[in-house]
């Protein structure tokens, strides 16, 4: 599993705080008898941007899916800001955490999918405000203000009242980014964010990602294309 680190940063040697944002410790993931990840260890520091490149089937996406708790961790630990994500070590034993505890730490992570996965029955604005309102219990007005700010950040505030089906692929993916950002995550995961897009729409998504990277967001990006996700 080759990892393409941002120039100037060395994995696990982040400057601020000491505790890595993300830490994979002896992570094992098996699907049936196939071992996809075998004793994987790596850190991602705060504000660090990591791109995972490699042939399909090498486990890049699995790393993101484990972090997002979309897959069950076979063995090992994942730490977010030093807190256990799905399994904790108690008295030297590996203990699976309850789903409520998992949710507390998972809230710090946002994810953007290859297929956008917007909710087709909700408007752009409702897509973005759903989680802040339901999970963070934010009043409607406040959630909408944040949503509009996020839409301005991804440069499509004028689409707020449309449905996802009325938008282009590039616009949908930018809504997906805004939706994840509205939960104010500390880490953003991107799973091949541009590979379902027409070539002419790739740039508008990459521009948003670059702006996000410049703002200091910790990012892990899975890509099948070297350098440019």
């Amino acid at each position: 599993m080759p990892t393409d680190q941002t120039p100037g940063s060395i994995p696990g040697h982040e400057n601020n705080g000491g505790v890595p944002r993300i830490q994979f410790e002896d992570v094992v993931k098996r699907f049936g008898s196939t071992t996809v990840l075998d004793n994987l260890n790596f850190n991602v520091g705060r504000g660090e941007r990591v791109t995972l490149i490699g042939p399909s089937g090498s486990g890049k996406t699995t790393i993101l899916r484990l972090l997002m708790t979309l897959e069950h961790l076979t063995d090992g630990y994942i730490w977010v800001d030093g807190d256990p994500l799905t399994h904790a070590r108690q008295d030297g034993k590996r203990v699976e955490l309850k789903s409520k505890q998992v949710a507390q730490v998972r809230k710090r992570i946002g994810m953007v999918f290859q297929q956008f996965n917007l909710f087709p029955h909700l408007t752009v604005l409702e897509n973005i405000t759903l989680a802040p309102r339901e999970v963070r219990r934010m009043p409607k007005k406040e959630a909408e203000e944040i949503a509009m700010r996020m839409l301005e950040r991804v440069k499509i505030p004028e689409q707020a009242h449309k449905y996802p089906g009325q938008l282009s692929g590039g616009q949908q993916q930018r809504v997906a980014i805004a939706r994840a950002l509205a939960m104010q995550p500390k880490v953003m995961l991107f799973d091949e964010p541009t590979s379902a897009l027409d070539p002419e729409m790739i740039k508008e998504v990459l521009d948003v990602m670059e702006e996000l990277a410049d703002s200091g967001m910790t990012m892990i990006v899975v890509s099948h294309a070297p350098r440019r996700p």
Partner: peptide, 8 residues
Amino acid sequence: EAATALSL
């Protein structure tokens, strides 16, 4: 999965 990623 999107719902999980949003912690709903």
